[in-house]
Design a protein around this nucleic acid. Structure first.
Lengths: 152, 152
DNA sequence: TATGAAAAGTGCTATAT
DNA sequence: ATATAGCACTTTTCATA
């Protein structure tokens, strides 16, 4: 769909805080509530807005230890990739899995409590998967910036 | 704060869909609407819930090209790190910046329209920053899994 | 802590321009 | 495409156990 400047401003509002009311957004953009309402509905139906979620503080729920895990597969046939992707997707500790270019095949983002929990995850859940060649773990020292906001 | 099983279930609901009403959650958990309401308020005030956001489809807003950029600094004195972190944080294309262990210092997640836009970003915004030693770009072939949901 | 009922505010629909 | 108005629903507050 075509997104104009008003749509962009609405998206900026909702990306920052989806609890903002139509009224507040309408006031800010000097439009009526229904105009805002209809535009948001359109953005939702077009799939521009894919959902509304609560973000939670990882530390508060004992998942403050973030590890990036680079994975090489032993083979690269399509069904190998597909099977690996299916299995890794089902692991709740893996909140992100990207198929990437470069010296390895996949980059995983893993959230666990601490190093012990990561070791446990690696040994009992990840390296037991079929077709895994090698893994390399990169530990997060500090989350300098983490945002869900896409600039428009 | 202490989080019990009911809180966890509430968080699971809200992480999936923050538009779910207190009534729906109350019905599911067989509690009153006010009980749910008060628990959510507590989770918000304690900072367990850090916010509510709308997620948008990157492709729909011409930001479908995701690049991971590994960065080495030339020096690692504290003020060098701090200055780099401050500058890189202000770039809207960078939605994530992690200080990491391993063969490089920082891992950036960059969202742009396409390869041309990335080249432009790299040349005009990133590599002009002070103290940058080297950069290595990893291109995303496929976003196999991308979630904001932390398993509890 | 949890409940139920009442008050205030928001979202949604229809109608109109 | 935007605005106004009325109804339904949700959130929020309060009294109570």
């Amino acid at each position: 769909m075509k997104i104009d400047e008003i749509d962009k401003k609405i998206l900026q509002h909702l990306q920052k805080d989806s609890k903002k009311t139509n009224k507040e957004i309408a006031n800010d953009l000097k439009l009526s509530v229904t105009a805002i309402y209809e535009r948001i509905r359109k953005l939702e139906r077009a799939g521009v807005i894919s959902g509304y979620v609560a973000l939670i503080n990882p530390e508060a729920v004992d998942k403050g230890f973030m590890v990036l895990c680079q994975i090489k597969l032993v083979q690269h046939k399509k069904d190998f990739l597909t099977k690996f992707e299916k299995e890794v997707t089902s692991l709740p500790e893996v909140i992100e899995c990207l198929h990437v270019s470069g010296g390895f095949d996949y980059m995983l983002k893993v959230l666990v409590k601490d190093m012990d929990a990561y070791r446990e995850f690696l040994v009992t859940k990840l390296t037991i998967l079929d077709h895994i060649g090698s893994t390399q773990s990169i530990f997060t020292i500090n989350k300098v910036k983490q945002s869900t906001v896409i600039s428009l």
